[in-house]
Design a protein around this nucleic acid. Structure first.
Length: 278
DNA sequence: AGTTAAACCTGGTTGC
DNA sequence: TGCAACCAGGTTTAAC
């Protein structure tokens, strides 16, 4: 579910409240993707430094007596969302609330019905178990170091369909199924086109389209198909602006041809076969 | 080494 | 109404 815009909306919602908050307790619900990696009680007394993001991961640095004390790596998976519940006693956790970080300012609660999400304690961001998960990630989409030339060069090394390359995050992180479809449509590139067949100008156009799409989604608070909500429980608004995602059979906004749906890289792919060129 | 499929879960929607 | 089949924002892990 949550792609980069949703994760960033979440980060912005919790960074302020969490910065400087002291952990009082941690509670686990049903198992998530991996075990937490430490006894929940050992988190008590730590001070949360805020919230950072890398790809679709969130990192909450912890400190004790002003010294780094590891942190929590969070992933929202397909159906996860975080809520910030200010004040003392938070409400009873529901059946899909699988992690509470109780602080002196409020409770950070992970809600994740499908439990593909994760909360993982790691001694540092560049140490196991966090580091191996982040090691394979490509560039941040808004990193100025990701120039059109570098993006094109990275695509030249990949023979897989461009849709699959965008989804796996090995070149650039942040796009999931919705925004990969939308960016390819905006750049008028066919999702099945091999990445190494994309010309330099078209790669530049795709990078710009990806950035524009992610930025627009961010400004709208992300997309809410079903589960996602921001930390106050609010829904995103981008889904109603989607040009192609979830719109099979409806007319292409650019050329009017009926939009197609085809499974690619194990995911439903929405595109216009008429104006997204190979 | 690079690419593709299977697996992890729950719940909502669709169709017989 | 009941029930099976299919679908959903991700990505690690295993298998070609």
């Amino acid at each position: 579910m949550p792609e980069l815009p949703e994760v960033e909306v979440t980060r912005r919602g919790i960074a302020g409240p969490l910065a400087g908050a002291q952990v009082v307790a941690a509670r686990l619900g049903k198992p998530l993707r991996w075990p937490l990696g430490c006894a929940p009680a050992t988190l008590s007394g730590a001070t949360v430094g805020g919230a950072e993001r890398r790809g679709k991961y969130l990192w909450l640095p912890l400190a004790r007596e002003a010294r780094p004390a590891g942190g929590l790596l969070l992933h929202l998976g397909m159906s996860g969302s975080l809520a910030w519940l200010p004040g003392g006693a938070a409400s009873e956790p529901g059946p899909h609330d699988h992690f509470d970080l109780v602080t002196d300012r409020g409770t950070l609660r992970l809600h994740d019905p499908r439990r593909f999400g994760a909360v993982l304690w790691s001694p540092a961001l560049d140490a196991a178990p966090a580091a191996p998960l982040l090691a394979r990630l490509g560039a941040e989409p808004f990193d100025p170091a990701l120039t059109p030339a570098r993006f094109h060069a990275a695509l030249q090394r990949r023979r897989a369909p461009i849709k699959a390359v965008l989804l796996d995050g090995s070149v650039v992180v942040g796009a999931g199924n919705i925004y990969a479809c939308e960016a390819l449509f905006a750049a008028a590139i066919h999702p099945a086109l091999r990445a190494d067949r994309i010309s330099r100008p078209r790669a530049a156009r795709l990078l710009q389209a990806l950035r524009d799409t992610l930025a627009r989604a961010l400004a709208l608070g992300g997309s809410t198909l079903r589960d996602f909500s921001d930390v106050h429980g609010g829904a995103g608004a981008f889904q109603s602006q989607a040009a192609v995602y979830g719109r099979a059979g409806r007319p292409c906004p650019r050329c009017g041809a009926p939009l197609a749906r085809r499974v690619m890289a194990q995911r439903s792919t929405y595109f216009c076969a008429a104006c997204q060129r190979r």
